[in-house]
Amino acid sequence: MNQSILEVKGLKTSFFTDDGEVPAVDGVDFSVGEGEILGIVGESGCGKSVTSLSIMGLLPSPPGKIVGGSISFKGEDISHAKESRMRKLRGNDIAMIFQEPMTSLNPVFTIGDQLMEAIRLHNRLPKKELAARAAELLKMVGLPRAKELLKEYPHELSGGMRQRVMIAMAMSCNPKVLIADEPTTALDVTIQAQILDLMLKLNRETHTAIILITHDLGVVAQVCKRVVVMYAGKVVEEGDVKDIFNHPKHPYTEGLIRSIPDLHSKKDKLYTIKGSVPRPGSIEKGCLFAPRCEYVMDKCRTDSPELVGDSHKSRCFLHQVQE
């Protein structure tokens, strides 16, 4: 395996609201190897986006705060790094793109302004070279008419084009890690295919590691090498993408996969996971999935399982009994 470049250990992030502490991320571990594409998958409220914001140091604070664990980038713990240190890392070593390409670009500055700013923040370049580099980046992400585009405003571009601009901006300083938070969720399926294709191409060419955060198992299956499945603020399963999809260990992962309608064959009835995601902090003991689990045992209601296994880990007593 490649050397890991980003390692998250026991990360706990909470929001401190008027109703008390809400643990959004509650002990998350994973690592990303150089040049790897890691998928983090889960439904809304599972803590996947909070995890990414914690890594970037972009938690809305207050009320959000990292209350435990570590995030090491190239061996340096950045979970409580100073803002000045994080500013040097952000955009330069760790870049991020977001779900909403329509609102993620500043509407009153040109594409060129925003792109050149991203470059200039971490590189001292003369103005002419800046513009040339910006145009080059736009070409790299497959946008035609790069020169004219630099002078245009975000509202003149389609959603797909804006997401390409966001990617160009994120790639402007050759980051080691690119965190993509639901990058294609707001896009149409044919545009999604274009963007995923582009991300794969950039990963091959630049060797930038990608953390792809999504709720779409299809996207994960098509793009990622390794997958982390999150549920209610915890990692419930982690492993190679083929292992996860072919032999899911955690009942939640299994349920998710079985819930998706199949494009190629018609099932009579869809599998459903009963109930809904618990509110953070509402289950005090036992496995967080126990109330919805088909295979629930007495033990699950009292004890919390650990994430165990070698290359294919799961947080479920079913497999710990077998092993």
């Binding site: 999604q192 295919a193 274009q194 294709d197 779409d216 299956a221 998706i260």
Partner: peptide, 21 residues
């Protein structure tokens, strides 16, 4: 149809990628 990502890593099919918007 070919653009839909299939939740099955065993069938990473060749997609028809439409150009443009």
């Amino acid at each position: 149809l070919s653009a839909v990502p299939i939740p099955d890593p065993n069938s990473r099919s060749e997609r028809i990628i439409l150009s443009g918007d």
